[in-house]
């Protein structure tokens, strides 16, 4: 039985009052086991950052509880000592150098270790620019400094809100390797929100997808994508083909082709049906659905909007 690193229980959050009221989270339940990379997905305004702020005790939930290693950060602030975080774009004192910013944060946490700061700056690739004012940092440099800040206290759980925001392709690649390494070799847990779905697909063990403040899907990446294969069919006349296939499979017209929700095994069946209806078949290709397709299908379906 593995440890639960992070849990949300019936968490709801409403901002503002009266007419200006915004329900950012509605009854969110989530459980993240230790020792994995957990992806947290959702369109803009879905409530990802709000969730992360609640976990870090930056805002108080209107209802429900958050727990980190079984302890509520509201009542038991000490548990946040085991957490490192980047929240919504790293922000630092612009009038201090990168190193001085880390020093101030380390001291705020109660301890200062110069050697650790040096090695973290090295790791995130800022060693050479660490003496410069953050005012002059690029977006990606600030994000790297944010990662260093999150790692200052050698946390067991990392909560990263869009960590690759502003990073260059090499930086993104490094971040991916770095995160996997933290989990696979150092036994840490990473909770990671992102928009870049290919990223999540490559790095995460499990994902949760939220939309409009509510959980839409949750599961291992492999499971979510399994059994959701598609066929892309090019045929003429297209409209007639769609009509024929729609009788047996879910079909979606897609410009020059139609997309059919069926797996590879169904191809002969599809072709037979089309030929029988005197439709000319040019191509039938099996496509594995990407997380992106899956994400779009669950966050845009009317069912998701009800949840």
């Amino acid at each position: 039985m593995t440890e639960i690193a992070l849990r949300l229980h019936h968490v709801a959050k409403t901002f503002g009052r009266g007419k200006k009221q915004v329900q950012a989270l509605k009854n969110l339940d989530l459980e993240v086991q230790a020792g994995q990379v957990y992806g947290f997905l959702g369109p803009n305004g879905a409530g990802k950052t709000t969730t992360i702020r609640i976990l870090l005790d930056l805002i108080r939930p209107t209802r429900g509880q958050a727990a980190i290693y079984g302890r509520d950060p509201r009542r038991d602030h000490g548990v946040l000592g085991q957490v490192g975080a980047i929240v919504e774009g790293a922000a630092f004192y612009p009038f201090l150098s990168g190193r001085r910013n880390l020093e101030v944060l380390a001291r705020t946490g109660g301890a200062y270790d110069r050697g650790r700061i040096d090695s973290l700056l090295e790791q995130v690739g800022l060693a050479e620019r660490a003496g410069q004012y953050v005012r002059g940092y690029s977006t990606g440099m600030k994000q790297r400094l944010g990662l260093a800040a999150a790692l200052l206290s050698d946390p067991d759980l990392l909560i990263l809100d869009e960590p690759t925001n502003g990073l260059d392709p090499a930086g993104i690649q490094e971040m991916r390797v770095f995160i996997r390494d933290l989990v696979d070799r150092h036994g840490k847990t990473v909770f990671l929100s992102s928009h870049i779905l290919s990223e999540i697909e490559q790095v995460c063990d499990r994902v949760a997808i939220i939309n409009q403040g509510a959980l839409v899907r949750e599961g291992a990446v492999a499971d979510l994508l399994a059994g959701s294969a598609e066929l892309r069919v090019e045929a003429a006349p297209l409209a007639h083909a769609a009509e024929v296939l729609a009788a047996r499979w879910p079909v979606q017209p897609n410009g020059q082709s139609i997309t059919v929700r069926a797996d590879r095994a169904a191809i002969p069946e599809v072709v037979r049906a089309l030929v029988a209806a005197e439709v000319d078949v040019f191509q039938v290709v099996s496509q594995r659905q990407t997380l992106e397709d899956y994400f779009l299908s669950v966050t845009q379906s009317p069912e998701a909007n009800h949840a």
């Binding site: 005790d57 930056l58 602030h77 946040l80 922000a91 630092f92 944060l105 705020t108 946490g109 109660g110």
Partner: peptide
């Protein structure tokens, strides 16, 4: 103004 409360609060009550 600098948006830095979020860095401090998880580290100290």
């Amino acid at each position: 103004q600098w948006g830095t409360w979020k860095n401090l609060l998880p580290r100290r009550r």
